[in-house]
Amino acid sequence: MRSFSFIDFVSLLSALRWTVVLVVLALGFGAPLGLGLATGRISRLAPLRWISAAAIQVIQGVPLLGLLFFFYFGMPVFLGIQVPALVAVTVAYTLYTAAFLGEIWRGGLEAVKQAQWEAGACLGLSRWQQFRHIVGPQALRLSLPPTVGFLVQLVKGTSLASIIGFVELARAGQVVSAATFQPLLTYAVVAAIYFATCLPLTLWSRSLEARLDGSR
């Protein structure tokens, strides 16, 4: 048994990089998929709307922890080969991110008035051009605050990867806590690191929202 030292603090802080890696992977794959789901939800093809809506409902109807375990144990079953934990975790967080961002961005798209689409159509723009140049940018502005807000949820959510043994910040906390027998200090430090990561995002989201309210 040893006491909590500066080295432990450094190891916790460096575990944060894996938290960041998870967030980046989740966003890198999840955001495009989320955009697909959002546009699917407002598509003119009914089946596309149903499929996107169902996908979002299913993913949002299952605990994140459940998604992680499902893919951790499921990937070998689906693929017939063992995959690294990182792959399974990435798949789970990607779907999680896609569902939430898809729902947020759909809200943004629907908040833009129908007349804006029509105005674009009157100028002879294609449906894609209307989206790309007229409705998309407005929707993005409207949905930026909740998008940043979701980022906070995602950062906190990566702590669950610890449960299937993936060593990120929360898992590093458990390891240090077990080694030092100082759970109070360790978890306080872990919480503080998460807090220091999330609070700026929260404040950013709030200021974006205030700016949006002010401009309306």
Partner: peptide
């Protein structure tokens, strides 16, 4: 509000369960 919204629920749970006994 800020404290509980900006830290993971899991860590909060650990603190209540492992730390409060101290």
């Amino acid at each position: 509000i800020e404290l509980f919204r900006n830290t993971p629920s899991l860590i909060q749970l650990f603190i209540v369960f492992f730390v409060l006994p101290n």
